[in-house]
Design a protein around this nucleic acid. Structure first.
Lengths: 222, 222
DNA sequence: GCTGTTATGTCAAATCTGTGTAAAAAGATA
DNA sequence: TATCTTTTTACACAGATTTGACATAACAGC
């Protein structure tokens, strides 16, 4: 879902039309008030925000968005009039993720939206690295296209690995994240789960690398 | 460190001057070739890349950057001529982090640089000196662009060296930091690790200098 | 230049440590 | 209860680390 705040109905409709025909779900708002109302109902993935607005201007709206913990992480693209460089600077410094200079092409808008979403890939619900893909919602894992049945702990560990490919997780980190407690004493619990993971993942099992003296990581295949 | 690739000497100098006077360390390049040469030596925090370049254009350079595992995470801001919308789209789709439309103000450039760096802040912690780069999170080391496999102690020692380039570490300091204990008695342990480090780092091995009677350090320049 | 002294480089052997694995015990779940 | 998951224990082994002996290089004084 993408929200567009834009007072010019022509531009607004064009934006919504383009976004929808590109496969996004989009809703337009004429001003800040109805926009904030909608925000209470549903948080969009991204906001396109015009700076020149009648009652409350875009900069003010942006400040409010960034001030509230529920909305501060939603990426914002500011739309600004040509030559208003100061606005751009202010917007960027206030935490806008990008901006569009009017008049902008719809192709460009879509590209920027995609680029920002790519950057802010906050919660991709499906993690994929190499031949392994893990669906967080469905709680399923496929390796080389084949469904793999994992237990809870195994799933959580694999999810961590996939969430940051190439990054090494120490046993302490794994314990903290998966068990929520500290890694105390000498136990081979983690190793055990890694072993079964490797086994169940078959071919892809080799992607889980041991970093001796440190921990484990999933190979960032290149 | 920020690298600027721009064929127009006037613009390039202006960029470098502005960035330096803002507190950044910046170096300019006229074309792709010297830029890639410098890249072997040191990886910058950010790259400002002109699209219209004589021999190899910015899009090509961007593709190369994103194709190499050592450079694909470095944020890139593309500089493009006004109205060349297609370029922008292509650049953004290829993974550029932002772009500047020529002619752009220096204030805007600085704002964008800061914004991109802010966004990419929580990325990876990478120490780079000369041709060596060490990724703390991934626990990997590259020398001259090639992956080098290090053992735990080797990694820790190299990490110390890279954390303070040019500074000499005595054997006592190394023991205290890496082993967490005091350097007792006469043993060749540290020297041994330094030897294997130099060996494994190949060309870059020479960067580890012996300071007779004191300890070791990593050579800052060259 | 030499020469003796000292620090560092190198090697192979000895030691130590972390990890893989299996199997059994302990907890959950149904 | 039976079954599945998780944890623990025990042990073997590959690989990392350390050590001591010796070679080599650097330096200071002559």
């Amino acid at each position: 879902m993408i929200y567009c705040v834009e007072d010019d109905a022509g531009i607004r409709d064009m934006e919504i039309y383009t976004l929808k025909s590109t496969g996004f779900d989009a809703v337009g708002f004429e001003s800040g008030a109805p926009f904030f109302e909608a925000l209470k109902q549903e948080k969009p993935e991204l906001i396109i925000l015009d700076i020149m607005l009648p009652i409350e201007d875009g900069i003010e709206i942006l400040k409010k968005l960034k001030a509230s913990s529920g909305t501060d992480k939603i990426p914002v693209i500011m739309a600004t009039a040509k030559g208003a460089e100061y606005d751009k600077i202010q917007g960027l410094d206030l935490g806008a993720d990008d901006y569009l200079v009017k008049p902008f092409g719809m192709m460009e808008m879509v590209s920027r939206v995609k680029a920002v979403l790519r950057r802010c890939k906050t919660q991709t619900r499906i993690l994929t690295v190499g031949g392994i893909s893990l669906d967080i919602d469905a709680h399923t894992v496929d390796a080389e296209g084949k469904r793999v049945e994992l237990t809870f702990k195994e799933f959580e560990i694999l999810r961590l690995f996939l969430s940051r490919p190439g990054v090494v997780f120490t046993r302490d980190m794994l314990f903290a994240e998966v068990w929520g407690s500290n890694y105390v004493g000498e136990t081979r619990t983690v190793d055990m789960h890694v072993k079964t993971l490797r086994q169940k993942l078959g071919e892809c099992g080799g992607m889980i690398e041991t970093v001796r003296g440190v921990g484990y990581r999933i190979e960032e295949n290149k």
